[in-house]
């Protein structure tokens, strides 16, 4: 029956309509987790270039200096911050800390993630 719980309905997890910040956090955590996992695989693939000698790796480093790749790296940093800080919120609420102000905590931590990402962007694009 279509109105009952079923693991096949996992796409509902990503439906933000009529949802609260708590579920947005839940959705963000799912998406960033998938992104970070994908990045980890990518990262290992790139590292495997080392086995092909110095030349192959240098070619890759050259490629990695392009702004598009840098932007990708920035996304990884943003995902890491969002996921980590959100995780912190879940841990806090689990221990009964800030349960009644969890919305405010969410917005505060997401603001922190945004500031962190901006700081990294500044360093990556203008300083380094």
């Amino acid at each position: 029956m279509e109105n009952q719980p079923s693991p096949k309905k996992f796409l509902y997890w990503f439906d933000p309509r009529h949802r609260q910040p708590g579920t947005w956090a839940f959705i963000l955590n799912r998406i960033t987790a998938l992104g970070l996992t994908f990045y980890l695989v990518l990262h290992l693939v790139v590292l495997s270039n080392l086995t092909k000698g110095a030349e192959g790796y240098d070619t890759f480093l050259e490629f990695a200096r392009q702004p598009v790749v840098k932007f990708g790296e920035l996304l990884v940093i943003a995902a890491g911050l969002i996921h980590g800080l959100n995780g912190l919120r879940v841990v806090l609420t689990t221990f009964g800390i800030g349960v009644t102000i969890q919305r405010q905590v969410f917005w505060m931590l997401m603001a922190l993630a945004a500031i962190g990402t901006a700081a990294f962007a500044y360093v990556m694009f203008f300083v380094a």
Binding site: R19, Q20, A25, F26, T94, F95, G96, V99, Q102
Partner: peptide, 29 residues
Amino acid sequence: CHSGFECTAVCPSNVDPAWRIMDLRRKVI
């Protein structure tokens, strides 16, 4: 529970299930 807090948002009767789940977690721990 994944801390979505949707239960508390829709509860029409002041139960605040999410708060109670978090409290139950503390008691379980």
